[in-house]
């Protein structure tokens, strides 16, 4: 016994990073945390490997009782967490004793809180990963989001201490002026959108729809307009300009379903018959993970090389090198 779930929260799942690999071609998306920056830092704070299994809590967090002593860290959204009623600070490791209760409420800033436990969460591997895929009913803890009465098994830790903090500048920053600037790479199907449509996509404000989840982030905004490639095509491509012969879907792709763009996320369907004019690269997923319904996105086009450089920069921050030197006792 390690941790008992008193309340599951809205959708709390066991995830690891980068999730399942090698099964995308069978139809299994990778899953894993959406804000993988905050997720990895939570693990770093408790002495785990950055990708170790931890909890992702969406919008309303869980209530958990410790059945043994543990070192934990919370990162990401502020859900006014308490341990036996005392406030729990974000972005540092803390000790919890057997019998204590950790309670998270609703997110007041951001959308997803990550809870890492020293030693990681020790659920069985499924396709070499501990990540939960709720729609596929597999991975994680019995393939479901946490529910009352479940037990979360923990691994053993030998490298954990409370009071660890991060150096300045290693955490994901808050959005400037409440507007999220999201990097996009053009393609794979940007040539289906005409010049006016491309300009409109990049220059308009887009609103995140409440109908968003780990499968896809739905956006509301202006109309799309198309090139001849979309309007004058072989009939098996389908009727609407956004229809194409079934093809595979990159994760992060902005999938245009009629006039509705949906950013395909970590639990995505792996293929379908709609075009993907742009793709949100992995370096910007943390912003998706922390944005709230009705918040505004603005897209900024970057090159593949720029997106890869930013990914490397973030990965370098998600290591023990980001821990602040420990002060005097």
């Amino acid at each position: 016994m390690a941790i008992t779930v008193i309340k599951g929260g809205l959708e709390t799942t066991v995830q690891d990073y980068p999730g399942r690999k090698g099964a995308f071609g069978m139809g299994f998306p990778p899953s894993g945390p959406i804000d993988h920056w905050s997720f990895r830092l939570a693990n770093v704070l408790v002495g785990n490997a950055p990708g170790a299994a931890a909890l992702e809590c969406a919008f309303i967090g869980p209530t958990l009782r410790f059945e043994r002593d543990a070192v934990i860290a919370l990162t990401g959204a502020d859900m006014k967490a308490t341990l036996d009623g005392d406030p729990v600070p974000l972005w540092q490791s803390i000790g919890a004793r057997a019998g204590q209760t950790l309670a998270l409420a609703s997110a007041v800033t951001g959308a997803r809180t990550y809870i890492a436990f020293a030693g990681g969460i020790d659920v069985p591997l499924f396709l070499d990963s501990r990540a939960t895929f709720v729609i596929g009913a597999c991975g994680g803890l019995d393939g479901v989001a946490l529910k009352e009465g479940q037990t979360i098994p923990l691994g053993s830790a030998d490298n954990a201490a409370p009071g660890r903090r991060l150096k300045e500048g290693t955490r994901p920053p808050a959005p400037a002026g409440g507007i999220w600037e999201i990097e996009v790479v053009a393609g794979p199907n940007d040539d289906w959108i005409d010049a006016a449509g491309q300009r409109r996509f990049l220059e308009s404000d887009w609103k995140l729809s409440p109908k968003s989840n780990r499968v896809g982030f739905r956006l509301e905004g202006p109309e799309w307009t198309f090139t001849e490639k979309a309007t004058n095509k072989a009939p098996e491509n389908g009727e609407h300009p956004s229809n194409v012969i079934d093809h595979g879907y990159p994760i992060g792709a902005i999938n245009l379903c009629g006039q509705t763009p949906i950013i395909l996320m970590v639990d995505t369907l792996t293929l379908g018959g709609f075009i993907n004019p742009y793709t949100v690269p992995t370096c910007a997923w943390w912003k998706l993970g922390q944005s709230r319904p009705n918040e505004t996105y603005r897209f900024r086009q970057v090159s593949v090389a720029e997106a890869q450089a930013e990914r490397r920069r973030i990965a370098a921050l998600c290591t023990a090198a980001s821990l602040a030197p420990e002060g005097p006792p």
């Binding site: 790479v185 053009a186 393609g187 794979p188 199907n189 940007d190 093809h247 595979g248 990159p250 994760i251 992060g252 792709a253 993907n276 793709t279 949100v280 690269p281 992995t282 370096c283 593949v304 997106a307 890869q308 990914r311």
Partner: peptide, 9 residues
């Protein structure tokens, strides 16, 4: 064509 930083169609 690229699909972000780690996919290609």
């Amino acid at each position: 064509t690229p699909g972000g930083d780690r996919f290609i169609e």
